[in-house]
Design a protein around this nucleic acid. Structure first.
Lengths: 209, 209
DNA sequence: ACCTTTGTTAACTAAATGGTTAAACCAAAT
DNA sequence: ATTTGGTTTAACCATTTAGTTAACAAAGGT
């Protein structure tokens, strides 16, 4: 009677897990305002009151999903850029890993950015856990490469925005790209697969002297 | 009868104009689902029933704003890329004009993409007015430059996504960039001003041999 | 067996919300 | 002055929705 998706963890999902899985699906699709507690209950195959039993309010359930989602993507910027890889490896890793991650979770980027736009700024800061990611390592590497004459002068902030935009934007605009480029979702994913390399190449060519 | 919008520069806004101005503001901020007709009425300083008098339903009011907003941004891709400018001028114009446009309407990109993600694909196609933008001119220019050895081989689709991502992404992620880069909205706009040049430079350097 | 704790449900409540209606308002035409 | 037409409003209605409650079921310990 139960269709089991959790071969990976052996234990089949408990009620709380089921709720979060359903909430993810519905919130990703409809956002906080568009989602209905009843939708989530239906998706999870249980009574609506159970959602309130496990997570007191819609607000709280949403926040759980949002934190989890944003937490998967945003701190990763730091995680990669603060590593001790060399400058060029770092750019490669950033593009490859970010696009890989987005391909595995294609709805998270739009969900997080869309909701982040509505949230108060103070809330956003909480997301970074008090300490905003430290980008100084990557910044210093860039400046060193520029000083060494390996990289043409470019603002650190602009480069970061270039990299993020190149990697994430397609996932934010998929429906429009589908129409614009006359492609379906499968072809889109194929493009994203190629993009791991294409993005890295593009960025490295752009900055190298 | 119909009130005249032809001379909207001089005449003070009529009721319909006031409603649309208010609707823009509220929809941009809260999206279709988050917006309340009462919010819009308050913002416009009038009775809620008037909204229904001019636009029968919330759906219809929303669609008016959405079409107008998307119509300002999406067809512009074609408008610029299909012009008879040279390849390099075209890239320059694209970055400069798109960022200029986004700076003047900083909420439209997130609004359009966020809602486009919820809409059905069929609806999106209606947006392009039956005929999706013809990107073949730009595509041919790229291929010619590659054949002439001026530009290194690169997929047209990837380049288009690079350009769009670089120009639009910052406006989709402003709240997060504010935190990430420790900047306020004024500094953000300063960055965008510089970005017109930075984006063009970056892209041209990336593709040139 | 008996009681306590935890999990689950159907039925309900209160508030919010999109939309309607009938009356009031007001400018222009008669 | 009165009529007439579109415009605007307050009050109202029907539905939806987040959240509650009380009863019920299932374990779990004694």
């Amino acid at each position: 009677m139960d269709n089991n998706l959790a071969e990976s963890t052996q234990t089949e999902p408990g009620t709380e897990q089921k709720i979060m899985m359903a909430a993810r699906k519905v919130f990703f699709q409809k956002g906080m305002d568009g989602a209905r507690m009843q939708d989530i209950a239906n998706e999870a195959g249980m009574n609506k009151a159970l959602l309130h039993y496990y997570f007191r309010t819609k607000e709280q359930l949403f926040e759980t999903i949002f934190q989890e989602s944003a937490g998967r993507f945003i701190p990763r910027v730091k995680q990669i850029l603060a590593s001790d890889d060399s400058f060029y490896v770092k750019i490669d890793r950033f593009c490859t890993e970010y696009i890989t991650m987005a391909m595995a979770n294609p709805f998270i980027p739009m969900f997080v950015l869309s909701e982040a736009n509505k949230q108060s700024d103070s809330f956003l800061q909480k997301l970074f856990g008090g300490a905003a990611p430290d980008l100084s390592v990557f910044k210093k590497q860039l400046e060193d490469e520029i000083k060494a004459g390996q990289v043409r002068p470019i603002s650190f902030e602009q480069l970061l925005m270039h990299m993020l935009g190149i990697c994430i934007f397609p996932f934010l605009s998929r429906p429009i790209l589908n129409t614009l480029l006359h492609i379906d979702n499968e072809q889109f994913m194929q493009l994203m697969q190629e993009r791991k390399q294409a993005a890295t190449d593009f960025i490295l060519h752009a900055i190298r002297k």
